[in-house]
Every structure is written in C-alpha cells, then in structure tokens.
C-alpha cells in the first residue's frame, strides 16, 4: 500500500472539504477501498475517515418510508425489523452478497460506490480504460465472463457488481447527498452511470460530495423476490440477478417493478419490461415477450454470451415464482 495521510473527519462539512481535494478519498467500511489500495488500483494521498460522523441510523420518514443511514452497515440494514417486513427484497439482496463478516463492516454508502470486479481493472499490469484512461480495454477481447451485455461502450464493458443497489432500484429508492454546494437527492436509478467515453466515472457524485442516506418510499407490499445466479451458491458475485416486486389483481399483473444485476455498468432498470406485463395474464409467452424487450439490444463478448439466455431464463423463473406466490 502506498503511504497516505489518515484524517478523521470531525464533521460532514469537513469531510466534504477534505474530499473536494484532488487526492483524498472518503473511507467508510474500507472493505472495497483498502482492497484496491493494497493492489495499488487506488492510490489516495489522504483518507478521510467518515465513520464517526453519525448518519448511521435507520429511521422512519414522515410519509411512512424508511431512511437508511449511509454509515449503517449492510448487516444492520438487512436485519432491521422494518426492512425485513416491509422491504424483503432489500434484505434478501443484501444477504445474498459477500459474507457475514464483510456485511458487518460494509456500509450502505460504500456499497453503492463499490467498484467493478473486472479482472483487468484490479490488475495494474493490464490495460484498462477505467483505471488508466486511454490504455485500452483488456476485457473486450479477453476474460469477460462477469462482464456486461447491456449499455456497454467500445471503451468499457464492466459491470456494477453490487446486489443491494439492484433491490434499491426496483424499490425506487433515493440517494441523499451532501456537498459544498448543498444537498441533493438522486434516484438510485440515476445514481450510477453507463461507461460511454468516460468509463472512469461510475456514479454522479462530484468531488466533495458525501452520501448521507438512502430513502425508501412508503412500502408497496406485493411479492418481493431477489434471485441471484452465481458460480457457487455463496460468497460470489452475481452473473445475473433479478429484483422483483410483483402484484397480481384478478389474475393480472397490477405491479411489476423489476431491476437486474450483473448485466451492465449500473443496476439495469428498463421501465418497458414491467409495463409490458401490466394488465396481462401471466403466461410463458408473456414472460418471453418481457425478456425480448429487456434483451433487445443485448450483446455478448464471447465469454459472457451465456448471460443472454441465462437472463431470459432467470426472468422467466422469477416471474413464474412470483405468479405462484401471489396466487
């Protein structure tokens, strides 16, 4: 690890001031940042420790929703009584990620900002446009099993690896952000970016901006499912995951909020997929149609071609299960 200065941020304002500088990164749980610093993928000159700023509570909002502190841990969030009963898709998504030890340390803010697990990105001897702009993308003609099939660019085909944000996207949650220019709220669906020509930009946070919380809207009920397909049944990142909130009324879909992990540089939310289900009676043909819409522009890169049929089947399985559960 390269030498760095460690500073405990005494206040949120000071944390913003510190991280507004060129070479300073916030550190929360450290489970992603320290990993990358050991690999010299991240080489900050200074770390601003934000752990003792507060923003670690999970509390009811006035409209019946729930605010998850950015510094609450993934475990505290997944086991919170209201998350378990009102937002089960979120508990399930968190519990499907990493391990108990990691979730005990990982924070909600850090989880949103976790970086890709692309092998070329984490190996400084390899070309990678995200880590070193202009050096090329090793994955496009290389090891690309984990990589994206939607929203890719000729610069980068990495995926956003997290689980929690996929559930947050399906739930329509909002990220609360504080910086030197004030506070703003951004839907989780708009928080992460596609790679385009700037693959090193992964989310909309500006320098000096700190995530303070995530707000869940009032509970919507329904059948909530998080289905994660991976190479082993625990302690592995998603190849494909589906977060679904489904409701049937009189045998027809009356709610279908869907988001997908493992497919793109961000949790994938295509409103057309849910819309095509609404008002329709569940059937194999309908599920196929939803998959056709979702995968219309999908493109594989050799090693990850399997993700296209796998996504179709996983969506099918989730919709079948939701239909059974709701009946």
């Amino acid at each position: 690890m390269r030498p760095f200065q460690y500073t405990r941020a005494p206040s949120l304002a000071e944390a913003s001031n510190l991280t507004a500088g060129e070479n300073t990164l916030a550190i929360a749980g450290g489970t992603n940042l320290l990993d990358l610093m050991k690999l010299q993928v991240e080489t900050p000159g200074q770390l601003a420790d934000i752990n003792r700023l507060g923003y670690a509570d999970i509390e009811d909002t006035d409209d019946g929703g729930l605010r998850l502190g950015a510094l609450a841990t993934n475990t505290e969030t997944a086991v919170h009584p209201r998350v378990r009963s009102d937002y089960p898709v979120l508990s399930r998504a968190i519990l499907a990620g990493a391990t108990q030890q990691l979730r005990n340390k990982a924070t909600n803010g850090g989880n949103l900002c976790q970086r890709t697990r692309c092998f070329y990105f984490t190996n400084i001897d390899q070309p990678c446009n995200k880590r070193e702009p202009g050096s090329g993308c090793g994955a496009i003609d290389g090891i690309a099993k984990l990589h994206a099939i939607l929203g890719t660019s000729d610069q980068c085909i990495a995926t956003y690896p997290g689980d929690m944000a996929v559930a947050l996207s399906a739930l329509g949650a909002t990220v609360e952000i504080s910086g030197d220019k004030g506070e703003r709220s951004v839907p989780v669906r708009d928080f992460h970016c596609l790679p385009g020509d700037t693959p090193w930009i992964e989310n909309i946070l500006e320098r000096g901006e700190i995530i303070t919380g995530i707000v869940l809207p009032a509970p919507v009920g329904g059948t909530q499912i998080y289905r994660k397909v991976r190479e082993r049944s625990s302690y592995a990142f998603a190849l494909v995951s589906v977060a679904a909130i489904i409701e049937l009324t009189d045998g027809k879909f009356s709610r279908a909020d869907l988001a997908f992990g493992g497919l793109a540089h961000k949790p994938w939310h295509d409103p057309r997929v849910g819309e095509c289900l609404l008002g329709q009676v569940p059937s194999d043909a309908l599920f196929d149609k939803a998959a056709d819409i979702l995968l219309e522009d999908a493109r594989g890169f050799g090693e990850n071609d399997f993700k296209i049929p796998l996504t179709r089947r996983t969506l099918h399985a989730v919709l079948s299960q939701a239909t059974e559960d709701a009946a």
Binding site: G29, T31, Q101, N104, K105
Partner: peptide, 25 residues
C-alpha cells in the same frame, strides 16, 4: 483481501475480516 476469513476476529462482539480494516480506525 477479504476472500478467505482466516483473519476473522470480533470487534465489539461483531465478526469482521481484520485484513480489510486499519488498526488506526
């Protein structure tokens, strides 16, 4: 790198990977 669990310890009663956290914190 947080991938094996050999370094697991309890901090304030909670299990974590001691390799992915700084002593100074």
């Amino acid at each position: 790198h947080g991938q094996c669990g050999a370094c697991t310890v309890l901090v304030n009663g909670v299990r974590i990977n001691s390799c992915l956290t700084l002593a100074t914190m």
